[in-house]
Amino acid sequence: MPAILEVDNLVKKFGEFEAVKGVSFQVEEGEVFGLLGPNGAGKTTTISMLTGILAPTAGTARIGGYDVRTQMAQAKTLNGLVPQDLALYPTLSARANLEFFGRVYGLKGRDLKERVADVLRVVSLTERADQAIETFSGGMKRRVNIAAGLVHQPRLLFLDEPTVGVDPQSRNHIFESVLRLNRERGMSIIYTSHYMEEVELLCSRAAIIDEGRIIALDTIKNLIAMLGGGVIHVGVERADPTTRDAIAALPMVKEAVLLAPSVAAPPAPGAEADLHERAPLATGSVIKIVTEHSQQAVVSVIGYLNTHDIMLTSLEILEPNLESVFLHLTGKKLRD
């Protein structure tokens, strides 16, 4: 598949602050691509550069072959943006909002009316089309917000946190709409979220972004496979590098990392933390163990601790998902 979007070492600085620190990725035609990261990671800034809202400080990107630095006018005709905010005019009706955004993209007459009717069907709001947006529920407003990004039939749609503040029913409706657009119309979609379940559900590939950098980029399956059979956090009374190495050598254990001790528990003498990540549950030292099979690894780890008379203080099994991948990569939770 050809790439609809090629991002090459994109940088954005606001004064001294570097919000995006050289991100690179590609999105294929017809792909739903996820940008996963916590708030403030640089997702919206990246999208703003790709849609012409912000000029990149360095690097470039091509949309449908058009360079966003030199051919943004052409690139804009291929893009659709659904911003994080409800970018609508509350006192106007849903139809008036959609017609306005359609006109801005050059649609007019019958074509405009048909396109508006079509996107109203896509978001299931035909019945309420002539009511003012201010009378809509939060979920309905979100759906009109999406429709406004679709009215000109973009080849590449940027959905920036489209489910923030949405009730579960409307969220499901948005998911269905996104999948239908991709399946039935072949629309390429970049979906940013800090909800890992959404990215797992909707996207075939994703980039995990943190502090302005892409720290992982792969298919969802491969990203989750980074954690093998899952991750367990084992809290012990005391731990040192020798214990860590011994656990790493146990069956079904891929990797063992000594986490920085929690505030309440000073590190064991001679023990040095492998990561700055704080132990999430422990009162003493915590060893993070990446397993090939979490339940079998738990059995062998507990056996080792008993044999060596090391007291177990806590045990947490993290299912393999994007949340635990992010935690594994950054030492932070996505919603921190």
């Binding site: 703003s48 849609t51 012409g52 809202i53 006018a73 804009k76 005709t77 893009n79 943006l81 911003p83 994080q84 905010d85 409800l86 970018a87 609508l88 005019y89 509350p90 955004f101 801005v104 993209y105 050059g106 406004a148 990004g149």
Partner: peptide, 13 residues
């Protein structure tokens, strides 16, 4: 404030 300015900046205007 509502974000429509960003949306318009992203359009061919």
């Amino acid at each position: 404030k509502v974000g429509s300015f960003r949306r318009l900046l992203a359009s061919p205007i």
